[in-house]
Design a protein around this nucleic acid. Structure first.
Length: 484
RNA sequence: GCGGGCGUAGCUCAAUUGGUAGAGCGUCACCCUUCCAAGGUGAAUGUUGCCGGUUCGAGUCCGGUCGCCCGCUCCA
């Protein structure tokens, strides 16, 4: 049997649409860039992944609690977090090389060169000008004026052929309150869920009877006005994060960071993802985000290449300290046993739910040749499968339908199942293969005598004969014992 | 945002120098069918992404716009 794995996202995009996993948003109006909707199968898959995460991060952990913070937050949150500043980069493009630069970085490098040449006076004067950008015409205009006046050239092409300076605001803004005027009542759609956890840190500490080390887990939507948002659900403007912030004593953070990195890789493998398609990619120190002391990506080998599905960060005490500073509230933890007081460090695990869903689809996708015929099958872990079982009468006859319908009703209580009597039996099997349904149950005439049915397995197309009464437990065992 | 490519049925794609929009698969109904996309009959689905222009006539040519794909940048 020849097996073909995925070589591009196209097939996943097609399958997602034709089977009802994922649709483009507002498609009848021409679509909305980088926004997607989950269809009937997609929502089941996504929810199954979500609940696996929630179970792994809260239920089986005795020191991690859940949270569901609102998307809207006080604007000061984003000043404290650094997003107002850090998410507003003034960019300028070299028209010749098409390369993009941060305008302020270009000027800083320019100042550095002047200083190296020994012209300290000139350098200081320019530095002063740079420090006061935004006070003359406006941030972008001021930066542009400096670049023009100094005739700063492009580092890669040497050209002096710039676009104007433009600001890329990665946070979505909206107006808070029905009667909104000017910029006074602007609030942001959160660009990450983490801050909802940090601002509730004290609430949880005071009410949930937790002691350090402890974690707070949350699943929710986040929004980013990405400059480039592409590649199906991999990079969306509206996306869903599953984040856990783990509060630890300073000094233990390196150890906890390593522990969580290892724990999270195991979670991905437990979803049935093949180990050879997962890897860890540590961030070099000079590329760390403003809040992080150490960071690593858990990457998956998507058809578009190795890409980040989850990030593990040592956020230090950056967030709690900043919120303490901006809010004036104490964020310290008092250790009763050791009689000491400190601001906890935070280890963050942050995984993209949409990226995980895409990963599961990509990893499961196979095209197989079976006796000269092609079949497309999603060999995903049964616990993630949108539909657990298809239930068919072997042929469309009333007496077979009756028993099949009875089995459907019995199983519906515990599993998402689908009854189907349209077309040949082979066609119905293949239909379920494309949806990733791990089990198909077929009622034939023998079964009317002894209450037995065939159960057919998605992965190898083999069949077993079992009593209809045992179906629920056979399915349960099949899900539990599954190996990729 | 910039450069390049693309946009025809649910999916994959045809359609001659500009001249009546089609196929395969899928979907639905009925028939047939005792285990892997079988067969038969019939049906539905298109303002050819959208808007405008040129023309007697535009899927085809031109302009704009929206969306998708590939690069530049950032991230979950």
């Amino acid at each position: 049997m020849s097996v073909t794995h995925l070589d591009s996202l196209d097939k996943i995009v097609s399958l997602s649409k034709s089977r009802g996993f994922i649709f483009q948003s507002s498609e009848i109006y021409g679509g909305l860039a980088a926004v997607y909707d989950y269809g009937p199968l997609g929502v089941e898959l996504k929810r199954n992944i979500q609940s696996e995460w929630w179970k792994a991060m809260t239920q089986v952990q005795d020191n991690i609690v859940g949270l569901d913070a609102a998307i809207f937050m006080h604007p000061k949150v984003w000043e404290a977090s650094g997003h107002v500043e850090g998410f507003n980069d003034p960019m300028i493009d070299d028209k010749q090389s098409k390369k993009r630069y941060r305008a302020d970085m270009l000027i800083e490098q320019h100042i550095l060169r002047i200083r190296d040449k020994g012209d300290t006076g000139k350098a200081d004067q320019l530095q002063q000008l740079l420090n006061t950008t935004g006070t003359r015409k406006g941030l972008c205009e001021d930066l542009y004026d400096i670049i023009m006046a100094e005739e700063i050239k492009s580092p890669d092409s040497g050209a002096f052929d710039w676009t104007e300076v433009r600001q890329f605001n990665l946070m979505f803004k909206t107006h808070y309150g029905a009667v909104s005027k000017d910029d006074d009542d602007i609030i942001y759609l959160r660009p990450e869920t983490a801050q909802g956890i940090f601002v509730n840190y004290k609430n949880v500490l005071d009410t949930a009877r937790v002691q350090i080390p402890f974690g707070i887990a949350q699943i929710g939507k986040a929004f980013r006005n990405e400059v480039v948002a592409r590649q199906f659900v991999f990079r969306m403007r509206e996306f869903e994060q599953m984040e856990m912030q783990y509060f630890v004593e300073p000094g233990t953070d390196d150890e906890e960071y390593d522990k969580w990195l290892a724990t999270r890789i195991e979670w991905h493998k437990a979803l049935g993802i093949r180990g050879e398609n997962l890897r860890v990619s540590p961030h070099p120190e000079d590329k760390l985000a403003h809040y992080a002391r150490a960071a690593a990506d858990i990457q998956y080998k998507y058809p578009i290449g190795w890409q980040e599905v989850e990030g593990i960060h040592n956020r230090t005490d950056f967030d709690l300290s900043r919120h303490s500073e901006f809010s004036g509230k104490k964020m310290e933890y008092f250790d009763q046993k050791d009689q000491k007081r400190y601001t906890p460090y935070v280890i963050e695990t942050s995984v993209g739910l949409d990226r995980t869903t895409l990963m599961v689809l990509c990893d499961a996708y196979r095209e197989e040749e079976v006796e000269g015929e092609n079949r497309t099958v999603l060999k995903m872990h049964p616990k993630l499968a949108p539909t657990k079982a298809g239930i068919f009468p072997l042929i469309k006859k009333p007496e077979l339908r009756e028993l099949a319908k009875k089995i459907e009703l019995d199983l519906r209580d515990d599993y998402t199942v689908m009854y189907d009597e349209a077309g040949s039996i082979g066609k119905r099997y293949r239909r379920q293969d494309e949806a990733g349904t791990p089990f198909c149950i077929t009622v034939d005439f023998d079964g009317l005598e002894d209450n037995s049915v065939t159960i057919r397995y998605r992965d190898n197309m083999k069949q077993d004969r079992v009593s209809a009464d045992q179906l629920a437990s056979v399915i349960r065992d099949g899900i539990k014992s599954w190996k990729s």
